[in-house]
Computed example of a mutant assay.
Amino acid sequence: MSELTIVRVFDAPRELVFRAWTDPAHLASWFGPHGFVASETSTDPRPGGAWHSRITSAEHGVDRRVSGVYREVSAPSRLVFTFRWQHPEDEVGETLVTIDLAELAGKTSMTFHQAPFPDTAERDGHLDGWQSGFEDLDKTLEDLK
C-alpha cells in the first residue's frame, strides 16, 4: 500500500488555514484540482461529523462527489478525516487524511498525509490533484487575509 505526504508552508496564520479546511464556503473556493469547481460543499467539523463536496469540470467531462467523516478535530492544529470518492468505478476505497498545522513565524507549516492507496499510480494521481488544489488554497488565503 502506498502513502502520500505533502509538506507545504502557507503565508497565513494557522487559524486561517484551519478555517479554510473547515468552513464550507472557504473549502469550496479551493478544493479540487485546477480546472474543477467545487459545489454542494458542507462540513460538520467535529468527531463523527460528515463532510462532502462535488467537483466538476466541463473541460474534462468530470462530475464527482467525495465525502468522509471527521475522526479528530483539534482547532487550529489538527484534522483527521476519512476520504472516499462516491462513484462506482472508484478503486481507491476509503483513505484517511491527517493534516497537522504548525505555526512558523506568522506562517503555517502544513503536513498533509493520506493513506492507504492501492498502488503508486493512484497515489500519484492524488498527489497531482492535491498540489494544484493547494496552489488555489494559497490564493484563497491571500484573499482572506
Rank of each mutant, 00 (worst) to 15 (best):
S2N: 10
T5R: 08
R8N: 01
R14M: 03
R14K: 11
L16M: 12
R19S: 11
A20R: 04
W21P: 01
T22W: 05
T22A: 04
T22E: 02
D23A: 06
P24V: 06
H26M: 13
L27Y: 04
A28P: 02
S29E: 08
W30M: 03
F31T: 01
F31V: 01
G32I: 03
P33E: 00
H34N: 11
F36I: 04
V37G: 05
A38H: 03
A38C: 09
A38G: 02
S39W: 08
S39M: 06
E40L: 03
T41Y: 01
D44P: 09
D44T: 11
P45D: 01
R46C: 07
P47L: 05
P47K: 08
G48R: 07
G48W: 09
A50P: 11
A50K: 15
H52S: 15
S53F: 12
S53E: 04
S53L: 10
T56Y: 08
S57L: 03
S57T: 02
H60Q: 15
H60A: 15
H60Y: 15
G61N: 12
G61E: 09
G61Q: 13
G61V: 05
V62G: 07
R65M: 13
R65G: 14
V66A: 12
S67F: 11
V69Y: 05
Y70A: 04
E72M: 12
V73S: 05
V73T: 06
S74E: 15
S74R: 15
P76M: 08
L79F: 10
F81P: 06
T82I: 03
T82Y: 05
R84K: 13
W85V: 00
W85R: 00
Q86R: 14
H87G: 07
P88I: 02
E89P: 02
D90I: 01
E91G: 10
G93W: 10
G93T: 05
G93V: 03
E94D: 10
T95F: 03
L96A: 02
V97G: 00
L101P: 10
L101W: 04
A102Y: 06
L104D: 14
L104G: 06
A105H: 15
G106H: 00
K107S: 13
S109Q: 15
M110T: 04
T111M: 11
H113A: 13
H113R: 14
Q114T: 02
Q114F: 03
A115W: 09
P118N: 05
T120W: 13
E122P: 03
R123P: 06
D124Y: 09
D124F: 11
G125L: 05
H126F: 12
D128W: 11
G129P: 07
G129N: 02
W130P: 02
F134K: 01
D136G: 12
L137M: 07
L141E: 06
E142F: 12
D143I: 11
K145E: 14
K145V: 14
K145L: 14
